[in-house]
Amino acid sequence: MNITSCMKRHVVSIKSNTTINEAAAIFVKKHIGLLPVVDKDDKPIGVIGMRDLLKLELPDFVNFVADVDFVHDFGAVEDTRPSARNLNKSVKSLMRPVITIEEDCGLLRAYALMLQQNLHDIPVVSKEGKLIGIASRVDVGVAILSSWEKVE
């Protein structure tokens, strides 16, 4: 079994000139966590995750104070919104390098890669490098576990 058996073939992707605000709207509408960014030939050039967008709102202190248990009210932070200027920038500034797998990739290899690279979704590309699908940890994990039914 390889990754094509469990991946989603309908992939929502964006171009690098999409604005951050437009990307946010897509996350909301499609209820997804990762958006591959593709070039004009549909080849992935990066990804942008929901967490990259949320980072715009997270307060700075979260990066410095290891344990925020004692802060029972985030106060002003709770209702700060990123500036319109920031939201109208293209996603390029937030884009991260993409890690892909090819369509013939085995399920365990795919799962191990996601585990090690801490990915929740992984884009799948054809031999030519075109984006053809996307698989989540649950997709891969369910596919692996379902093979256990045949164990005697």
């Binding site: 307060p59 700075d60 202190f61 410095f64 104070v65 009210d73 985030f74 106060g75 002003a76 932070v77």
Partner: peptide
């Protein structure tokens, strides 16, 4: 300090 100033805004 960064924490305190951020939560009071």
């Amino acid at each position: 300090t960064i924490l305190i100033s951020e939560i009071i805004g």
